[in-house]
């Protein structure tokens, strides 16, 4: 499906769930228009509704999950915009535009290896569900700084998970990319595993290198500051193999070889 051509909705929605998940905040709101259209890897432009001018613009955030009419977002309160959203209580209203962007392509039957770093785990929940529903074998490598962020692995119940932390406070010590090569061998009678990744740029660069060395397909979801979110302002571009790419409308999910990793 051409996710970029799905009509987006601009809505104001009341928060119906707001809870702490370790270092992150999880909020949910009722938005059947978005829940029905959302494709794994797509994002919303989201801000706390109101006339406050600082923060000024909505923030692009990957859709964490949808359940019937409910849309769920996972927030890492690292800056002004995300902190304001994370402070949203039940009944507060959020302004949302979406679903936006080109999500993960789900075609094929290769075993799927999902790799998430930090808040980059967020869109992998909806992705894992969609892949499993399509009969794909799914395993997740979820990497965090410490056990405080790793609490979010509880959101991935029912999926095969390996936890990696940079301080070794829970799971395997190291970087989430460390165990990846060991997950990529082709099993007899099956296609080579396909990588789906979301996380900080250095992590994605490491995954690009590993995918190239091991000869596996990989799709990565990239982050960038955005203003319009719909392909117009050219503000969110990254360097691609053949020129600049708009993260909001050409992505946020790209084939790993379409991006320039220099």
């Amino acid at each position: 499906m051409d996710a970029g051509l799905i009509p987006a909705e601009l809505l104001q929605c009341a928060v119906v769930e707001s809870r702490q998940v370790g270092a992150y905040r999880l909020i949910s709101f009722v938005a059947p228009q978005i829940a029905n259209l959302a494709h794994p890897g797509q994002f919303l432009m989201i801000r706390l509704a109101g006339s406050e001018l600082d923060p000024l613009l909505p923030r692009p955030m990957g859709i964490h999950n949808v359940e019937s009419d409910l849309v769920t977002m996972l927030i890492d309160p690292v800056g002004k915009g995300t902190a304001r959203l994370a402070a949203a209580g039940i009944g507060d209203r959020v302004s949302v535009l979406g679903p936006l962007g080109m999500g993960f392509r789900l075609e094929g039957d290769a075993p799927a290896v999902l790799v998430g770093g930090g808040i980059g785990i967020s869109p992998l929940k909806l992705l894992a569900r969609a892949l499993a529903a399509g009969g794909r074998e799914v395993r997740c490598l979820l990497g965090f700084r410490t056990r405080k962020e790793a609490v979010a692995t509880e959101l991935f119940s029912g999926v095969r998970i390996d936890v990696i932390t940079e301080d070794g406070s829970i799971g395997r010590l190291g970087l989430v990319s460390d165990p990846l090569p060991g997950c990529l061998a082709r099993e007899p009678g099956k296609p080579a595993p396909e990588i789906f990744a979301c996380g900080p740029s250095p992590m994605l660069a490491a995954i690009a290198r590993i995918a190239r060395e091991c000869g596996n397909l990989a799709q990565v979801s990239v982050e960038s500051h955005m203003a319009c979110g719909i392909g117009s302002c050219q503000g969110c571009v990254i360097r691609g193999a053949g020129g600049y790419l708009r993260v909001c409308s050409d992505g946020p999910v790209f084939d790993v070889e379409d991006i320039s990793w220099q």
Partner: peptide, 20 residues
């Protein structure tokens, strides 16, 4: 015109800096 090298956007207090 390809435009300027990224990053091209930064939000500031009640403002937006761009270098498209």
């Amino acid at each position: 015109r390809a435009g300027n090298p990224p990053p091209r956007l930064q939000e500031t207090a009640a403002g937006l800096l761009n270098s498209i």
